[in-house]
Write a protein that binds this DNA or RNA. Structure first.
Lengths: 149, 149
DNA sequence: CACCAATCAGTTGTGCACAATTGAATTGGG
DNA sequence: CCCAATTCAATTGTGCACAACTGATTGGTG
């Protein structure tokens, strides 16, 4: 298969392609549960942190309400979470995992190990990659939804 | 800003976030020319390789016709390329850059250096990252040479 | 030649991303 | 206290991604 030399040298294209390839590795594990990858990320945060707000989800995932609002509405329709307008500050919306949503965690199980292996990288290389990605992202200007420095 | 420890450890989320962050670095450079990032990738291939087919664009970019067909139609509307059904094999569609499309290359200039710098990574780290990403995607190892954004 | 499987681009439908805007709630300065 | 600026979620509109499908074309096999 031909490789475009020009593209081959672009870090950005490598990121773009690798990200989509990795997401497609998750798909067969998530599809049976009716979850998309971004929805799975939201559920992971709920499993890990418990009830949170739309604002904090956006900060953590670097997504704005334009993306999150419809996504959360779909997760609510599926019965995985409940949205509730805050009482103290009525601008914020709290997201609570439901029992159904919590049960998903054990149903899906731990995907990270299987998928780390699927990359074919060693533990050391995965750690290197992780560090490089985090640093590359950390220096970048504020992503959408983020707080302005 | 809070970081979800769970997400923080996911290579896949790091890829997902880094890819979007990097794309958003390109946006201010491409917006003035009316290009999106995937459209820019297509134009780069045309600039580098000349006329090509929808099939080969898909193989190079790892995108199917469901994504490429409307994208190419928009680039054609903008006058950057011309679509032409093949004569030898009438199933394939050839994509030709127009003069307008070719002129874009000099108008936009070389973004890779500026954007590689924006990551804050050293040349060595960029090369490492490039190699790791390429391997994670399950493709052949990177040939030696300069690494650009 | 006849026919069937594979190839190719396009279409449809769903779900992100993200810019821009809206409108309600809150905060802070005077 | 009052009002302007800010915060927050939602909505609208555009453009990817990708699965599933369609329909035309081609290639291989009997």
């Amino acid at each position: 298969m031909r490789e475009s030399t020009a593209l081959d040298r672009m870090i950005c294209f490598q990121l773009y392609a690798a990200s989509r390839a990795m997401t497609s590795l998750y798909r067969p594990h998530l599809d049976p549960h009716g979850l998309t990858y971004p929805q799975y990320l939201v559920m992971r945060i709920l499993w890990h942190d418990g009830p949170t707000t739309v604002r904090d989800l956006g900060r953590t995932l670097r997504l704005d309400s334009g993306t999150l609002s419809p996504l959360l509405k779909r997760l609510e329709t599926q019965g995985h979470l409940r949205r509730e307008r805050g009482t103290h500050d009525e601008r914020t919306v709290w997201i609570h995992p439901t029992e159904t949503g919590t049960r998903l965690q054990t149903d899906i199980g731990d995907l990270s190990h299987a998928l780390a292996c699927a990359t074919g990288l060693t533990t050391d290389e995965l750690h290197q990659l992780h560090t490089l990605l985090h640093r590359a992202r950390g220096t970048a200007p504020t992503p959408p939804g983020g707080t302005t420095a």
